[in-house]
Design a protein around this nucleic acid. Structure first.
Length: 214
DNA sequence: TGAAAGATTCGCT
DNA sequence: GCGAATCTTTCAG
């Protein structure tokens, strides 16, 4: 019998309202903050999986750390789509990274979704991840992508319920937003463009308010 | 054509 | 807490 976390398993999900692409901010940093507290939903034949986004990073236009820095290529083309499209890539051979394109068509920029708090479909996530511990299911970008069955086939698709991966608002209010420098990058590493919900257990990096922010 | 770096994770000590 | 694993893309020669 798997260990249960009562506070997670028994809270009934709030009603989800799907976000339309035109409701998303058109600017990268604004979108990174906006996504905190929103719900990421993945539908599949295994059932619905959802989680509250608790950690994001912004990669604005012209940022040397952004994959779009050297112009449009086959790999990063999705970053140049109109804001609200899915950009997926593989890092370090195995980990899939889930991003949201964040600017106008033709402008390369995006927001990385680094972590989420599991809401529904926890058993499905456990199966996909091969672990029981709820606190490790979706902590870190590679783990999140695995729990949500994100693969390269989703690259370039819009966040829309018709495409099985979409964003929703359930009325949750974020009270304390923390910010810090981004994790694991070397270019432009001093910019405080990582955002997270302060005090949340699924945040994958340093969790102090203003950690490292200039 | 070859080499190096990378928005990470997991296991072992 | 540290270091290896892993593989695709990009850049330089």
């Amino acid at each position: 019998m798997a260990k249960r976390i009562a506070a997670i398993e028994t809270v009934p999900p709030r009603e989800l309202r799907a976000l339309r692409l035109d409701e998303l901010p058109h600017a990268t940093v604004a979108l990174a903050k906006f996504l905190l507290g929103k719900v990421l939903v993945r539908d599949s034949k295994e059932g619905r999986v959802s989680g509250r986004i608790v950690e994001t990073e912004a990669y604005p236009p012209g940022d040397p750390a952004c994959h779009a820095r050297s112009g449009r290529t086959a790999r990063n083309a999705s970053l140049f789509l109109r804001h609200g499209h899915i950009y997926v890539y593989r890092a370090y051979g195995t980990a899939m990274m889930l991003n949201v394109s964040s600017e106008a068509e033709g402008v390369g920029a995006g927001v990385l979704i680094r972590a989420a708090e599991p809401l529904t479909g926890i058993e499905v996530m456990r199966r996909r991840r091969g672990i029981d511990d709820v606190y490790r299911l979706t902590k870190g970008p590679g783990c999140l992508a695995q729990a949500f069955a994100v693969d390269l086939g989703l690259d370039g698709v819009a966040y829309d319920a018709a495409n099985s991966l979409w964003l929703a608002d359930d009325g949750f209010g974020v009270t304390k937003v923390g910010r810090s420098v981004r994790i694991g990058i070397t270019r432009n590493a001093d910019k405080p463009w990582r955002f997270f919900i302060h005090g949340n257990r699924w945040v994958s990096g340093p969790a102090r308010l203003n950690d490292g922010a200039k």
